[in-house]
Design a binder for these strands. Structure first.
Length: 551
RNA sequence: GCGCCUGUAGCUCAGUUGGAUAGAGCAACGGACUUCUAAUCCGUAGGUCGGGGGUUCGAAUCCCUCCAGGCGUGCCA
């Protein structure tokens, strides 16, 4: 499936240019025009051809224009100095697009280019040492939206959460709970320096005590296996609950311990050994990062004390992913892991990842604000705002919309007051309101007997105002938007497009009455706003945000 | 010190594989309800794209340099 307007145009351009430019075309752009006078779309190809042929952009451009003008998809094709071609989409193409979205619903923005190839998105993957915080919310929103958007392109997407259930952090965690248990037993004992101080561990200690009777005599060593399983299970189920409430479901929860159990670690290491990328120094085993990526420091895989590092199991984990046959593996990490990127990239290359098969998306940290004031987010004191609290305060929809409003690269200022507001200042309500408003009109139309309407009675030629044309144009370009945002792994473009459509609708609404005495016009407009409604619902669906029918 | 990210209107940010006179939302100011949701809309104003240099037909976008903020720089994860 492919409803891309740009692809159609691209093909026409290739065909036309081929008539006087025999060799392969340089990569050219088709952009949405910035101004009304410049049409709907434009291309810079004349500049590029001029550079290749020595002719002026004007000659190249005018040649193309004369060949392209005959295509039915355009109502007008202009050459625009100094070297652009501007395209005006014909009303027949716009009407065609509108009919398609009505007919195909959310399949309208579906593409078949992924060809069912498997892609994995691994995200959040927070250590099971405490509740998820706001930053994890950003990862969850990003990962889920990216996964949704890739599904649209017909990739077979798998969502995965990697659970680090072994290692030093877990030991510290379990020891902390053990100390809490001892304290509950009345012992005068303090949390270790590097312990976890959060109050939630006291609750966990209590429930472990209830479940297991004789905690009094047990040493940490004896109790460790069962206690650690209990603690991790408890915390993980809270994490699952939070993600569930946020609307995120995983296909797989992958436990780090699995890497150890199935010998996968030694397999990965011998893989590297064969390549001569492992050596011993100071009693430890090292990975020769420097041999793969210039300027990178070598890293320890196995410590002097015989324990493997997180890096070692992570290499094995990535080898495991590769073996599962993913066409592409996408890891989504917080900016605090930025320093880890080169070494895992190096390892990926060493274990046979094709270039580009591993994509690591780094998102910048979230700053919370209440009105104008910053809220400190210090994890150490345990006074961070959890994802749960955020959801309680602003709700899933606002949280997701805000997280997805900015590019991952950008630091995110999250204003809690704004997210809660039920006014047009708050973009999520603005968009949802447009959808609800359309639904309200459709309900009324139904009462009056306009719906369901037979499609053959709808005459779209009656939609001739600029406001109606703008809406149709946004619908016509929607598949391209979805495709581009998906391929770029940048869902924030879609929040932007949702705002654009909502705005165009509200503008239309104040100028035109949908339900009127003019029955034919009413039908045509109902048809149009139903298309707009589907567009909004579709985008919101990709973003994981609801599109309410009433507000 | 070094690495990565960021610096665009009062605020929050799009735009960064070079392309036309740099955009949006909010805030500010001024307007619009015999109406299918005024939870909306319209208009006005707002800019040395952090500074400086360079590359070229053309730079917010590429290169160099400097400044500011964030994150990282573990035999933690």
């Amino acid at each position: 499936m492919n409803n891309s307007t740009k692809d159609l145009i691209r093909n026409f351009i290739k065909e036309a240019a081929g008539k006087f430019f025999p060799s392969r075309l340089p990569p050219f752009k088709i952009d949405v025009a910035k101004k009304k006078e410049w049409g709907d779309l434009s291309t810079n190809l004349p500049f590029l051809l001029a550079g290749k042929t020595g002719n002026s952009p004007e000659v190249m451009g005018k040649n193309l224009v004369s060949l392209l003008s005959k295509e039915k998809i355009f109502s007008r094709v202009d050459f625009a100095a100094p070297g652009f071609i501007n395209f005006f989409l014909s009303s027949s193409h716009l009407k065609e697009s509108l009919k398609k979205i009505i007919k195909e619903k959310d399949n309208y923005t579906r593409f078949s280019l992924g060809k069912k190839r498997p892609v994995q998105v691994e995200f959040v993957s927070a250590n099971p040492t405490g509740p998820l915080h706001v930053g994890h919310g950003r990862a969850a929103a990003l990962g889920d939206a990216i996964a949704n958007s890739l599904s649209k392109l017909d990739f077979k997407v798998e969502r995965e959460y990697y659970v680090n259930n072994v290692g030093g952090q877990i030991k510290r965690l379990v020891r902390s709970v053990w100390v809490r248990i001892r304290q509950l037993e009345g012992e005068n004992i303090n949390l270790p320096e590097d312990g976890y101080r959060g109050e939630y561990l006291i609750d966990i200690a209590k429930s472990f005590k209830e479940k297991t009777k004789d905690t009094k005599e047990s040493s940490l060593e004896d109790i460790f296996p069962s206690l650690s399983q209990f603690v991790i299970g408890k915390i993980l189920s809270e994490i699952k609950d939070d993600l569930d409430e946020f609307g995120v479901r995983y296909d797989r929860w992958f436990f780090e311990s699995e890497i150890y159990e199935n010998n996968q670690l030694s397999e990965a290491l011998s893989f590297l050994k064969e390549k001569g990328l492992i050596y011993e120094k100071n009693g430890a085993l090292w990975f020769k990062t420097s041999a793969v990526i210039e300027g990178e420091e070598d890293r320890v895989l196995k410590r002097k004390n015989g324990e493997y590092t997180y890096f070692a199991s992570d290499i094995a984990y990535h080898l495991n992913k590769l073996k599962r046959g993913f066409h592409k593996v996408i890891d989504i990490w917080g900016a605090d892991h930025i320093g880890y990127v080169p070494r895992i990239k190096a390892a990926a290359r060493a274990i046979g990842y094709p270039e580009e098969a591993l994509k690591i998306i780094i998102y910048q940290l979230v700053t919370l604000k209440r009105g104008g004031k910053r809220i400190s987010a210090s994890t150490r004191k345990g006074e961070f705002i959890s994802l749960k609290e955020l959801l309680q305060e602003v709700g899933k929809d606002a949280a997701r919309f805000f997280f997805l409003s900015r590019s991952a690269d950008s630091h995110l200022d999250f204003d809690l007051e704004l997210a809660k507001k039920q006014t047009p200042e708050n973009p999520v309500f603005y968009v949802q309101y447009a959808h609800a408003r359309i639904c309200s009109i459709l309900r009324k139309a139904k009462e009056k007997g306009f719906i369901p309407f037979p499609e053959h009675k709808v005459d779209l030629d009656l939609l001739e105002s600029p406001e109606e044309r703008d809406l149709m144009c946004l619908i016509a370009l929607l598949p391209d938007q979805v495709k581009e945002a998906s391929l770029a792994l940048e869902p924030h473009h879609l929040t932007g497009y949702a705002k654009n459509i909502a705005s165009a609708f509200h503008y239309f609404y104040t100028r035109h009455r949908v339900i009127s005495k003019n029955e034919k016009l009413t039908l045509a407009r109902l048809f149009l706003i139903e298309g707009v409604r589907i567009a909004i619902q579709d985008i919101m669906g990709i973003l994981g945000i609801s599109a309410p029918e009433k507000m």
